[in-house]
Nucleic acid binder design. Structure first.
Lengths: 206, 206
DNA sequence: CCTACCGATCGGTAGG
DNA sequence: CCTACCGATCGGTAGG
């Protein structure tokens, strides 16, 4: 009856369960009892670790954002050349959300539920990185490898939107392998990357 | 104390209020009392027109979809040439959601909250139209105006995703005119259309 | 980590 | 279209 040796700490189990349920049913659609039940404890015990539902929400989002700000610097400095930096960056963003589609769903829900608060948080976390990417696109425009009519700020935002939205709703937009979600997701990702690339760079061999 | 002459019928007022509130706070985050209050009636009166919350939801989505299936045939038959048909189609999709951003938010929420049911509905409503567009892209590939590496089914889905997502979350992704939402939205729309076009057609003059 | 309990609010019904 | 009311469930607290 004993559990396997390295037992996950309860607060982390709560965070995992809350992430899954918030992503699937939304914040308002998820009760504390439902989260507690999934962990195997009672609601008051859950409230000992996270003193309110609102603080649990912040903990869930905090983990998502911190993971993100931790991994972003590494990617931006990794690749150096223009097109390989593009591939690396897009690949990493896609990889982050494909590794756990709940990340994309959670972010999309937050955009709908709390636009003002999210925008303020994003400004703090992401603004410096977006500036770097924008300058990188502008440099590409001056050297002639990037299309002149690209609107850098708007382009970045919509490519991210397309990635996050496409992965979050990948179960709705299935198109080829109704029995094989994995292969369908990879096909979608490939087309997303193609759209992002071909709408950014000037065709070298037409 | 009397209301202005052509009073909107109460059931329609309920539908309007429910659309706004479902879009802003989600289905679970909206109470029947809140909808009734916005209309100026009591909850039991609302339940006379729509006998349950679930049936109200279906009515809200039904109106959205019917408006859509009503307008789609017209656009598809309007334009004839390749690139003007593209502009017309994309413009109409964008126009439909820009005219009322709640339409985009409602659809995005439904994708997250009820993926299975929505996919079934979309299959019925939209499948024939998607087939037409897909064949049109394939014809373009054979005649050499459309890029050979486009994955038609996946392309359509992601362009729609980008449009719906971009408009639904336009208040989060503001980038230029924090004081002028309208101008910002138009700028976003222009870049969305550019991304869709340049990733579909082969550049004629490089 | 639990049982027991709180007031508030939920969707929905009775009855007029 | 209303008042009055139903059982169920919500987030959260007391107390151990």
């Amino acid at each position: 009856m004993s559990e396997p040796q390295p037992t996950t700490p309860v607060p982390e189990q709560v965070l995992d369960a809350a992430t899954r349920l918030f992503a699937a049913h939304g914040y308002e659609g998820t009760s504390l009892s439902a989260i507690a039940e999934e962990v195997g404890i009672r609601k008051p015990s859950l409230l000992y670790h996270y003193p309110s539902k609102e603080e649990l929400r912040e903990a869930v989002l905090g983990r998502l954002f911190s993971h993100w700000t931790e991994v972003l610097p590494r990617i931006l400095q990794a690749a150096t050349t223009g097109s390989s930096r593009f591939e690396g960056l897009v690949g990493e963003v896609v990889g982050f959300f494909v590794a756990d589609v709940d990340r994309a769903r959670l972010l999309l829900r937050e955009m709908l539920d709390r636009p003002v608060e999210l925008q303020r948080q994003m400004d703090g976390y992401l603004a410096p990185w977006l500036t770097i990417i924008r300058d990188y696109i502008r440099t590409g425009q001056e050297s002639g490898v990037v299309r002149a009519d690209v609107d850098p700020d708007s382009y970045i935002v919509h490519v991210i939107q397309m990635i996050v939205g496409g992965i979050a709703t990948s179960n709705v937009i299935a198109v080829s392998h109704p029995d094989d979600d994995r292969a369908d997701l990879e096909r979608h990702v490939a087309e997303i990357v193609r759209i992002a690339r071909s709408s950014l760079f000037i065709d070298t061999e037409p």
